[in-house]
Simulated scan of single mutants.
Amino acid sequence: MGYAISIGVFVLCLVWITFFNGDQHYLILSFICLAASMLPFYWHFETRESEAREIVFLAVLATVAALGRVAMAAVPDVKPTSFVIVMTGLTLGPEAGFIVGSTSAVVSNLFLGQGPWTPWQMFAWGAMGISAGLIRNFKIAHNRYFLAILGLVYGFLFGWIMDLWYVMVYVQPLNIKTFIAAYLASFYFDLAHGVTTAILLYLFYQSWYRIITRFKYKYGLAGVQDEINQQSF
């Protein structure tokens, strides 16, 4: 419920930026989107016991994702950001995945440059974290070969969302030919993003999953204590 509200806020911000000259207020809208991305956490904060260490752990993951992007800024789309976001969703759930995904975008752009693209990146990475969290209970979602394919797909989906913003704002005249041309122009960058995410998920999924899961159960993060209590009955 919480992240459904967040997605709604994101969509409204994206529509405003695209059609109502909202690029003049992109910074304000970016922080509105950031606040919206925190709604899932606050929603659960009110319905279950949450502690400061959970906030800190999510902040650490978002920082790792953001710094991974900043550190590799010289190499277009070869970044571990999506890997960290997907791992967060797979281990901690959709709310945590959405928070880390959207937060890492706005934090990394503090170093790389804010702009009307920031809410779109927050939405794309947030959606990536949600979708990874929603499939975490399926056995196939923890198969390295499946994750490698998923990582490749995520790279292209992220790029296509960003291309949609680009063509709606900058491509004139907008028709099927210019639309396809804009998407084809980003193929290399989307491929690099997808391949990087696929390789990282294939090589480091198991080690990251063990580490995050250990913290999850040791400190009772992401509602794990509620799961334990339910299993005990």
Rank of each mutant, 00 (worst) to 15 (best):
residue 1 M to E: 08
residue 2 G to I: 05
residue 5 I to F: 12
residue 7 I to A: 07
residue 9 V to R: 01
residue 16 W to R: 14
residue 17 I to E: 10
residue 19 F to D: 09
residue 20 F to M: 04
residue 22 G to F: 06
residue 24 Q to C: 09
residue 24 Q to N: 14
residue 29 L to G: 09
residue 31 F to I: 15
residue 32 I to Y: 05
residue 33 C to T: 00
residue 35 A to N: 03
residue 35 A to C: 10
residue 37 S to F: 04
residue 38 M to V: 04
residue 40 P to T: 07
residue 40 P to Q: 09
residue 42 Y to D: 03
residue 43 W to F: 13
residue 46 E to M: 14
residue 47 T to D: 01
residue 47 T to G: 00
residue 47 T to H: 01
residue 51 E to R: 14
residue 56 V to F: 10
residue 58 L to A: 04
residue 60 V to D: 11
residue 60 V to L: 15
residue 64 V to I: 15
residue 66 A to W: 01
residue 74 A to R: 02
residue 76 P to Y: 07
residue 77 D to C: 00
residue 79 K to I: 07
residue 81 T to L: 10
residue 82 S to D: 03
residue 84 V to H: 02
residue 86 V to C: 08
residue 86 V to D: 06
residue 90 L to D: 11
residue 90 L to F: 10
residue 93 G to I: 10
residue 99 I to L: 14
residue 99 I to R: 00
residue 99 I to S: 00
residue 102 S to R: 03
residue 102 S to W: 03
residue 104 S to K: 04
residue 107 V to Q: 09
residue 107 V to N: 08
residue 108 S to L: 03
residue 109 N to E: 13
residue 112 L to T: 10
residue 115 G to E: 00
residue 117 W to A: 14
residue 118 T to D: 09
residue 121 Q to Y: 06
residue 124 A to G: 06
residue 125 W to A: 10
residue 126 G to S: 08
residue 126 G to H: 03
residue 131 S to K: 06
residue 132 A to W: 15
residue 136 R to P: 04
residue 139 K to R: 14
residue 140 I to T: 05
residue 140 I to F: 15
residue 142 H to I: 09
residue 142 H to W: 05
residue 145 Y to S: 12
residue 146 F to E: 00
residue 147 L to W: 02
residue 148 A to C: 03
residue 149 I to Y: 14
residue 150 L to V: 10
residue 150 L to S: 06
residue 152 L to D: 12
residue 156 F to E: 08
residue 157 L to W: 05
residue 161 I to E: 13
residue 164 L to S: 13
residue 167 V to D: 05
residue 167 V to L: 14
residue 167 V to H: 05
residue 170 Y to A: 11
residue 171 V to H: 07
residue 172 Q to T: 15
residue 180 I to M: 13
residue 181 A to I: 11
residue 181 A to D: 11
residue 181 A to R: 02
residue 185 A to H: 12
residue 186 S to V: 13
residue 188 Y to I: 12
residue 188 Y to R: 12
residue 190 D to F: 11
residue 192 A to P: 01
residue 193 H to S: 14
residue 197 T to Y: 01
residue 202 Y to I: 04
residue 203 L to N: 10
residue 205 Y to T: 03
residue 207 S to Q: 00
residue 211 I to F: 15
residue 212 I to K: 01
residue 215 F to W: 15
residue 216 K to T: 08
residue 216 K to C: 02
residue 217 Y to G: 02
residue 219 Y to P: 09
residue 221 L to A: 12
residue 222 A to W: 03
residue 223 G to I: 03
residue 227 E to L: 13
residue 227 E to K: 14
residue 227 E to N: 07
residue 228 I to V: 15
residue 231 Q to N: 13
residue 232 S to A: 15
residue 233 F to S: 12
